[in-house]
Amino acid sequence: MIARRPVAPLILWAILAVLGAGGCSASAVLDVGYPSATATTPSMRARAQARRVVIQPVADQRMDRTRIGPALKNGQAMVSRRPLTDIVREALAVELTKAGYSVVAERGDVEVTPEIEEFWIDVVNGYKTTLYVGRVAIALAVVDGVSGNPVQIRRYVATSRREVDGASPSAARDALEVALARVLHDLATDPAIPVTLGPPSDRPTF
C-alpha cells in the first residue's frame, strides 16, 4: 500500500473501466507479529475518547492448538514463536487505542473477549514455486461493563496469499501477518464497532 497524503472529505467517483481487466520452510518456528502504526484521526478519537474498554484474556478456540501449519517434511510442527493469544491481544489493544478508546485493566464501560477461531498457514508446493495461504478468523464478544449484558458478537475472517520461488519461512510469516492485519483493519473500519463499544443509548434496540 502506498499512501502519500491525507485526503480530506471529498466527492469520490469510482472509475471501473480504465486500467484494463485485466515447501516447506527450513525452520518450523515462525515469528508472527502485528506491525502497528500510531496515528488516529481526531474524529475517531473524539467519538471514542470517553469509552474505557477491558480486553479479557484471549480465548484460543482453534481445533488444533499445538501448531499453526501442516507438519513439515522433517516431521516438525509449524509453530509460532510467541503465543497467539498475546499477539492477538496486543494487536487488538493497538487498534482500539488508535481508535481513541482507553484500554483499561478493569472497571471498563465495555468488555471485549477475543476468540481465535483459526490461525493457520497452508503450504501448497508447486513445480518451481511454493504458495503460502494464511488464514485468520477472530470473534469478538462484547459485554456491557456495567450491566454485564451481552452486546454483540462480531466475527472477522481474512486470508492472504504469498507465492515464492522455493520455500521461504518469511513468506509464510508474511502471509499470516497480512491475514491478521486484514482482520484488524476490517475490525477498525467496521461501522458496527463504534456503536457496539459506544454508550448503551447509541445501541439499536430490537
Partner: peptide, 20 residues
Amino acid sequence: RADAFMRVSVSRWGLMRVRE
C-alpha cells in the same frame, strides 16, 4: 464535479488450489 477518481482493475480471477 469529481474531487477524485478511484481506478479499479482486476488482473486475474478464478479458482486456485489452496490446500494439498
